[in-house]
Nucleic acid binder design. Sequence first.
DNA 1: CCTCGAGATTGATATTCATCAATTTCAAGA
DNA 2: TCTTGAAATTGATGAATATCAATCTCGAGG
Lengths: 231, 231
Amino acid sequence: MREADLQTLRGLQLFKKMSARQLTRLTQPASLQRYPQNTLLITEGERADFLHVLLDGCVELFASHNGRQTTVDILRPTTTFILAAVILDQPYLKSARTLLESRVLLLPADAVRGVFREDPDFAYATIAELALRYRSVTKLLKDQKLRSTPERLANWLLKTASVNGNTGSVTLDFEKKTLASLLGTSPENLSRALAQLEQIGVQTSGRTIAITDLNGLRDYAKPSPLIDDGI
Amino acid sequence: MREADLQTLRGLQLFKKMSARQLTRLTQPASLQRYPQNTLLITEGERADFLHVLLDGCVELFASHNGRQTTVDILRPTTTFILAAVILDQPYLKSARTLLESRVLLLPADAVRGVFREDPDFAYATIAELALRYRSVTKLLKDQKLRSTPERLANWLLKTASVNGNTGSVTLDFEKKTLASLLGTSPENLSRALAQLEQIGVQTSGRTIAITDLNGLRDYAKPSPLIDDGI
DNA sequence: CCTCGAGATTGATATTCATCAATTTCAAGA
DNA sequence: TCTTGAAATTGATGAATATCAATCTCGAGG
């Protein structure tokens, strides 16, 4: 494992205060993998063998049921994923695939469980991490149940766009159908929702979506810290 | 605080292995409250002051935004609620109200945070609790995004009905509009969904919903351990 | 530069769902 | 027992969304 990756790992709240010895215990048996775009990393229902750490690239978490499929989250470096399943030694509730070529660090689940039994700092960091993630999913659920598709899109844009001045823009590095699935709609309806937002202050051109009237969009989206903030 | 309630508290995984001294530190400053039906206990957005423990009755967790409102969960004894907000010392993401007359134990948030810094067993129990709840919300999100309203209803019935033999039944002790909101639909559509399920093996009479064809209902609902099981 | 094909958009239609209004049911209180 | 009002149901309608089909776009590869 490269020194730079170790530093990246240290940058995560979860590993920040961990003793060097314990960190070695985790990274020693870890394996660093490089996956091409569109590689299935995890299949829901299988037992959680590794705590995954996304170092580079982009990963989609999705779930399938009865012929349907939905995107639950789109992850960016640097972040761990499927922590809860690892802790409980339970089956994954979500599948994961790369959306871009990605580098992923695999920490053996039993090592993770072993370490936080011995390192109180890691235990507390885990508590904070899980609490944040719990709130994060709760916000996704509220977003889904309390908003229409165009509203979800508008808020996603506000969250995702790097805003400078009164404008900003997002350039997707994955397919629009993935965004549609994340928002809980079909690709067709995402197109229509984008068309709808044109009257409000959004200009779409291919994979680039520009905000032309930030205040107008905010006014429509009604973002809330109780739904949209945080990890 | 009554000895019986203390025993009830001990029955929760979260407090099972906690030392007597630490438990006292929690329960000493705690207050036991009795609330009538339909009392607002928590308002989303406010700072988390207490870890709540539902000892008797029934509590609805709900969220509001932009004139809309949705039920997130319906709690039964014995369970804690809003653990994550307490741990992070952050605003509640959900409001809470009693659906029945209820007894609730209030553990001061700072005491909770203090105790798990000193009691590793409590820290581990907290980790397990949060991981379970994280998975629980994830399942709610999957239920919402991957199923239609009648499917959600059918699965809720299977989960909730005490099944004996080939039949079973649920008798609601709260309003149907609350169930509708939990399922993410309107009261009108809940009525229609129940009518739809009559052809599949469900008989509704007032607040009692009986399963007349368990296999038929299961066949339609397609329950999955990755969506429907667990806390 | 051209061709090809997957992704995206648009249009047409069907389905699901929300909303409004009218009625019915039912239980609490007189 | 009767009255009364809230909850629930039912019907009618409209909006949101899904689905199917037909283009259109655009970048990768020849």
